[in-house]
Simulated assay, not measured.
Amino acid sequence: MPVFSPVDLSGDHHIHTKLCNHASGEMEDYVRAAVSRGLQSMTFLEHLECGLIYEQQIWLTPELFAQYFEEGFRLKKKYAGQIEVQLGVEIGWNALAADELRATLARFPFEHRGLSCHFYFDGSRHLNMLSSRQEHIDALIEVGADKVLEAYFASLIEACGEIPCDKLCHLDAALRHLPNIRLTARHQAQISQLLELLRGKNIALEVNTSGYAVRPAPYPGAEIIRRAAAMGIALIPGSDAHHPEQVGRHFEQIRQLLSP
């Protein structure tokens, strides 16, 4: 039996654009990049966040999602026969805004739903757990890395039970810019609970190649991918591209990693 489940690397299923306000490039730039790399399919996975106390909007409003679908439908038609273009969403879980999240999800015909959690609420504001901004890193260190990670995994566990989704995104990416980050026995137990939820609800695990820009492994790492594959959980690749040239990045490394 192979160590890893087969994964289809003919498509990149986690792509952002300038619409999220922290990436660059038009939607069509990404489609052209995917076609030039010989991909057969691609999925835009634009950010949906609700109820955050945060200094910058780095997600799409309903008005921007309307623009997103208008342009996306145009691109689907224009590039039909060259590449399959899917219009998805990366849902940032916030339990205090669950109803608003559900309302927005019901408003648009998202073809693919990725679930994630980017923010930790410290009682007065939301701190970005995946940010490289030193201000946020320092604030999260003050809270305590173990406490933040426990809250992060607990949020993902909660989200998997509350929001219908197709995959869980970059499972172990929280605090990725913190030096010497470690997962405790408690965190490992939470990851095991998450994997059981994925299997029970038929939710795929994303293999996010943006990890290679920070460490010599994707998100999540090989050990978690191995456990998921052994449990029969599907694996879906995504580059988490924020620039057109990042489409399909590090897919060859994933091919090598996932080889039997």
Score class of each variant (00 low, 15 high):
111 E>K: 00
175 L>G: 10
2 P>I: 04
24 S>I: 14
210 S>Q: 09
221 G>K: 05
57 Q>M: 06
260 P>E: 13
5 S>Y: 02
219 Y>Q: 07
5 S>G: 13
203 I>N: 01
169 C>N: 15
254 I>H: 07
252 E>I: 03
53 I>D: 04
258 L>C: 15
117 C>P: 00
206 E>D: 11
43 T>H: 05
229 A>Q: 08
138 D>N: 13
37 R>L: 09
161 G>H: 10
131 S>Y: 11
237 P>W: 00
49 E>T: 04
256 Q>E: 13
243 H>A: 13
62 P>S: 01
167 K>Y: 15
132 S>V: 07
173 A>D: 06
237 P>R: 07
118 H>P: 11
260 P>M: 03
72 G>M: 09
70 E>C: 08
72 G>R: 06
22 H>R: 06
128 N>D: 15
126 H>S: 09
69 F>A: 05
53 I>Y: 07
166 D>M: 05
75 L>V: 07
50 C>W: 02
243 H>E: 14
146 D>I: 00
35 V>P: 08
173 A>L: 12
69 F>K: 09
250 H>E: 13
22 H>D: 10
133 R>D: 15
185 A>D: 15
249 R>S: 14
106 A>K: 02
7 V>P: 04
177 H>D: 12
75 L>S: 10
34 A>S: 11
29 D>S: 12
163 I>D: 10
17 T>K: 05
63 E>W: 05
113 R>C: 01
125 R>S: 13
34 A>E: 06
53 I>V: 15
70 E>K: 12
218 P>W: 11
40 Q>E: 15
159 A>G: 09
20 C>D: 10
31 V>Y: 08
83 I>M: 05
226 R>L: 13
122 D>M: 04
50 C>M: 05
185 A>Y: 04
170 H>K: 11
134 Q>E: 15
163 I>G: 07
136 H>N: 14
90 E>V: 07
242 H>D: 08
80 A>D: 13
10 S>D: 09
179 P>D: 03
255 R>W: 06
126 H>I: 10
7 V>W: 03
53 I>G: 03
180 N>Y: 03
108 F>D: 00
259 S>R: 13
86 Q>H: 06
106 A>H: 00
51 G>K: 00
129 M>C: 13
190 Q>Y: 12
245 E>S: 12
178 L>E: 05
189 A>W: 03
14 H>Q: 12
5 S>V: 02
197 L>F: 12
87 L>Y: 03
151 A>T: 05
253 Q>K: 15
92 G>A: 02
95 A>C: 01
125 R>M: 05
24 S>M: 11
258 L>R: 03
121 F>G: 08
140 L>V: 10
163 I>T: 04
